[in-house]
Design a protein around this nucleic acid. Structure first.
Lengths: 209, 209
DNA sequence: CGTCTCTTTGACAGCATTCAACGTGTGTGG
DNA sequence: CCACACACGTTGAATGCTGTCAAAGAGACG
């Protein structure tokens, strides 16, 4: 059975590249309310999309790594802010150019595929958030990181504990505590505070289920 | 009684449509793992997309009302199941037809827009789930229902308490308790168990923030 | 070497879940 | 028309987990 998404060729360049941008850690890329003039593709480093709540709390909608495209909006303005997590470089694809590119069927399909990626990502995030316990959430988060890592068993966090907490709807303390519990139970092993070795993938999948 | 063809006019009028389908409450529309052969548009009634967890628990990914399109998948198979909440009628758009339709720029644009709608919906859901308390979640849910209701102050739930609970990552008991608290605090008023009048919209927005 | 941020750990209070029981409504068959 | 069954909804009490407040340890960088 063929599906439109299957026809898309991920290997091809999305578009003729726009301006290349560099950002230092924690620098804003765009802010909620800004005009949404372009999509952004991560060339290197890591990006987070963020929502700031009225009570001062922060919520992370997604993390983006090399190859990921972000900045999709339904309307003319950004509903989220985007920030550099680590030092990173991006390429911008302006919507003006995209409108023209819609004549090109291949590019249209790639754009569609990246949107579907974002949708799948958001749905996976919902699954993570709705399914109860802190242990389950962390296990799920580790597995998510694992899938995006070169070595599936060695994860290098690009982000701080605080970022993980705001992504999972937990507090920093709970994240820290739960990670140590996972370590004590031999599910994981710390190389450093930001590097984790997964010692029991099946076990983590059970915790996550 | 409206003519089905009328509902199709604004979106994808030129597409070859599959048969119109009718479903009784709680009947499956498709199941996770099925081949994703078509998108579905709700003509009338309400649909939920569902994820069944290994421990027997259930999670609702989204609710869809008249005019909404669902069934977007990144791969060739459905990752979620879809079920009728109420008695409902749908129209299917097969991917075969869509692939041909990608030549038509206007249809492509509409398809893209519906995907963005799904993305925005999922992001709003993430926001709801991550932002703490049961009261905040219910307030957010009521506001979400309000925006989709003809009369913004009178909501008619199509779904059971159990569905609301699985959508918000809560238990039925907590949903029930929290709704009565909101009633006692005069934020809402029950016409019946499935009909609520919102008496304090600004107040609910504060609770939700 | 000192300062700052990040991370970890502890104690306690608060809130959601769990288990249990009781109302409520709806539809079916007698 | 009534009675009953069954699914849905509400309420109560106790447990357990996460948030909060507080403080100390660990790295990074000048």
């Amino acid at each position: 059975m063929r599906n439109i998404a299957q026809d898309l060729q991920p290997a091809m360049a999305l578009l003729a590249t726009g301006p290349v941008q560099h950002f230092a850690p924690n620098r804003p890329i765009y802010v909620a309310g800004d005009a949404a003039e372009a999509l952004h593709k991560v060339v290197s480093g890591m990006v987070r999309t963020v929502r700031f709540l009225h009570d001062g709390k922060r919520q992370i909608d997604a993390f983006y790594n090399s190859g990921d495209v972000f900045g999709f909006e339904r309307g003319a303005f950004h509903t989220l802010s985007a920030e550099a997590v680590s030092r990173c470089t991006l390429v911008a694809y302006r919507h003006k150019g995209l409108a023209v590119a819609m004549h090109n069927q291949e590019l249209t399909r790639q754009l569609y595929r990246h949107t579907l990626d974002g949708l799948a990502r958001a749905q996976a995030h919902v699954r993570l958030l709705a399914h109860g316990g802190a242990t389950a959430k962390l296990a799920g988060f580790l597995l998510e990181c694992s899938e995006r890592s070169a070595d599936g068993r060695l994860i290098t966090f690009g982000m701080a504990r605080h970022d993980i907490a705001d992504y999972l709807g937990l507090t920093v303390e709970t994240v820290s505590r739960t990670l140590t519990e996972l370590r004590k139970a031999s599910f994981i092993e710390f190389v450093s505070a930001r590097e984790v070795r997964l010692k029991n993938l099946p076990g983590l999948q059970v915790l996550n289920s």
